[in-house]
Simulated scan of single mutants.
Amino acid sequence: MSQKQPTFSVIIPNYNNGATLGRAIESVLAQTYPAKEIILIDDGSSDDSAVVAATFGNRIRYVRQQNAGVSAARNYGARLASAEWLTFLDADDVYLPERLAAHARWIAREPDVDFLFADQEYQRPDGKLLRRAIDSSASGRSLLAQHPDRTEIPITQADFEQFIADGFAEIRTLSVPRATFLKLGGFPFDHRIGEDLYFFIRLCAVSRKGGVINVPLAIYYIYPESVLRKDPLGAQRAYVATLESLAAELRTAPHGLRRGWRAKVRHGRLSLAYMYLRMGCKSEALAAVTPLLLRNPSFESLRDVVSIIRGMP
């Protein structure tokens, strides 16, 4: 019996990335397994993005919206999409040639898989490799240890806890059914930092199984002028707020998923507290970790608070 071949809509949100937009689009057009469509959502750009997009003619679908943020752009693209599966690519990053093919082979064989990820490379703009996603995370290293010779690594609900605790939500390598994405409401409009992990946690809550390709399928370029690097303290505060906004929704989630979420919140608050300490803001540092003890009284949370107190000169 022949296997049904999946279709993919690639959503590219763009805001003033005319300098790199062409490279991103070319990387999708160069796929060994072609996308059904490429949907470029221009989020109110004021640069030459529209001119760059026009050079691709009808090979892409160009849609402009008023500036509303990356989540709104991705969600709009998903609503317009016509393929069964959605993938996403930021306008300053690229897909590697097998990005869609590797997932297509898996989905054709196992059409009920809930989502797929893959390894990715982190590079500087000059092309210098900084690290890879899988072997730089505890959850990734655990998968490699369990499946040392596999390119396709299955994951189940038992693995979701560690993936969430690690924050392993590489949006460039995520493939998700369009129906699932729309049912979940997509990415949050009111959170612009950590919106990818927010969506991944909610995706895990309704999923049974997924998979990871142990081969880099995308490149994430690290730019010094990114929001995370221009205002790391503000970004970390926003990141913690994004995670904590899921508290009510996760009250009835599986225990493992909740443990993973709590671990990520703990790590986020500790990181925020140490950032405050380095700035000499003692009361803010203590305020960042005190909620850990109030919400979940335990030896671990007490130890976290004490560690911050001891770090105060």
Rank of each mutant, 00 (worst) to 15 (best):
A50N: 06
A35C: 02
L29Q: 02
P34M: 06
A53I: 02
A53Y: 03
Q31P: 02
L29Y: 05
N58M: 14
F56E: 07
S49I: 07
E26Y: 04
S45V: 04
F56D: 00
I39W: 02
D48P: 07
D43F: 10
Y62E: 06
F56Q: 00
T55S: 15
A19I: 08
T55L: 12
D43S: 11
V63P: 07
R23K: 14
E26W: 02
R64E: 14
G44H: 05
Q65V: 15
A24G: 05
V52M: 04
R59V: 03
K36G: 12
A19P: 03
R59W: 04
E37N: 04
Q65H: 15
A53Q: 00
Q66S: 15
T32G: 12
G22Y: 07
K36F: 10
D42F: 03
L40M: 05
V28C: 03
I38V: 10
L21C: 05
A35N: 05
G57K: 11
S46Y: 10
Y33N: 08
L40P: 03
S46E: 13
R61S: 12
R61M: 10
N67G: 15
S46H: 13
S49L: 08
G44T: 11
G22H: 04
F56H: 02
A19M: 07
Y62P: 01
S49W: 07
I60P: 01
A24C: 11
I60H: 06
I38Q: 01
Y62C: 09
D43K: 08
L29H: 03
D48M: 09
I60S: 00
A24T: 00
V28Y: 01
F56W: 01
V28A: 02
G44V: 10
Q66L: 14
E37H: 09
A50C: 12
S45H: 01
A30R: 02
D43Q: 11
L29P: 05
R61H: 12
R23F: 05
Q65R: 15
I38R: 03
Y33R: 03
D47M: 07
A54G: 10
